[in-house]
Design a protein around this nucleic acid. Structure first.
Lengths: 203, 203
DNA sequence: AAAATTATACCAACTGGTCGGTATTTAATA
DNA sequence: TATTAAATACCGACCAGTTGGTATAATTTT
């Protein structure tokens, strides 16, 4: 096996093992030795690929964010009205609920680290700001084209992102009490229906 | 079994020191020795009052939840219309934003622990369920009295709690980009205004 | 004095990280 | 092509420091 391939494989396995272990036990509670054992790799290999445990964490964060962005951008299909586009985006919630199932602890871990580490904070918080401006623009467009009720776009964007965030968080934390796969998109669409310009609603 | 004054004082100081240290550094990253030093107490005293570090954590959680409940119930003033009551509750967001400022990391810490420890999970998640039923009842009442638009109360409750949760979380994480003290209640009231039965809005 | 409370000294286990050494692949050379 | 040199990827024993927790002695309170 060529040298480079094997190295990449090792690195991949460390990342995968770290993702699993961080997710189920948390960053601090996870020892480097544990990650190595799970990855079937020795400490020597670990510190060859990652100078420190924290570096590994950051690498994981970047992967996560890249994936997140991919999802959001994939939904940028245009052509319909803004109201309809937003309506369709509710399905992203269902996706996020099933997708994020195993990674909720790690999600929380990122936020937690973000409150202390400026680098993590920057990387974690920046997406939310981007989403807000994204939705603000969308709302403005919707108002202009007449499919959405007149309102402050920034306020609407804040509300939209907050609603989605809260739905995801609750759905991931408390999986049993409600069928979130249905409730989350439904709740989202309900609020959306209130912002539509005409009273005729789609159900 | 009457407790002695000094002993109670010691216990109180340990709790306070732990609250501060957990909040700023996290549970795992905080050592018992550190808590003791901050509290001006030795390890002997610590382990006399709390059999384990984890027990101390649970005690803190209980205190927190009791305080949270107190806030929610304090807002139960009746007499006005449901729409107006909900409208007034938006101010609780501002309170939560300033109040929770220092305790966000600990908040996250609770959630994180909740994903692993069933005891913590139960205590952490149960309030949200209670809030949902609380708001569902409120909405039902509002629809019946005619101050709120007709809608599925459960859906409305889910949306309301999610919105509040998302606003709080964003406001606590990202304090700089927006003046959340104003934006959070405003966004909340905006959504509320959409649910009001008549189109006449209060601004 | 008896009981409750706090102080001191200590420990085994574990932590992230280092370091000298090794095996295998790649590159240079003859 | 055969040989050699060098770079890459990895191993695992080891380190200094920290951890939660304990044993026991000293001190206060009743």
């Amino acid at each position: 096996m060529p040298k480079q391939e094997r190295a990449e494989e090792t690195r991949r396995r460390i990342l995968e093992a770290a993702r699993e272990t961080f997710a189920s036990q948390g960053y601090q509670a996870t020892s480097v030795a544990e990650i190595c054992q799970r990855a079937g790799v020795t400490k020597g290999a670990f510190f060859y690929h990652f100078p420190t445990k924290h570096t590994l964490f950051l690498a994981l964060l970047e992967d996560w964010l890249a994936q997140l962005d991919q999802y959001l951008n994939s939904e940028h299909y245009q052509g319909n009205s803004v109201a309809q586009r937003l309506y369709a985006m509710a399905d992203l919630l269902r996706l996020g609920l099933t997708q994020g199932r195993d990674y909720l602890p790690m999600f929380l871990e990122f936020w937690l680290q973000a409150t202390r580490d400026p680098v993590v904070w920057q990387a974690t918080i920046e997406p939310y700001r981007r989403y807000r401006t994204f939705f603000a623009n969308l709302y403005l467009q919707g108002v202009n084209e007449g499919s959405l009720r007149n309102a402050d776009p920034n306020l609407a964007a804040v509300a939209t992102v907050s609603l989605a965030l809260g739905l995801l968080l609750q759905g991931l934390m408390d999986r049993e009490s409600i069928n979130w796969d249905e409730a989350a998109p439904a709740a989202f669409r309900w609020v959306l229906s209130l912002t539509a310009s005409n009273s005729t609603e789609v159900s």
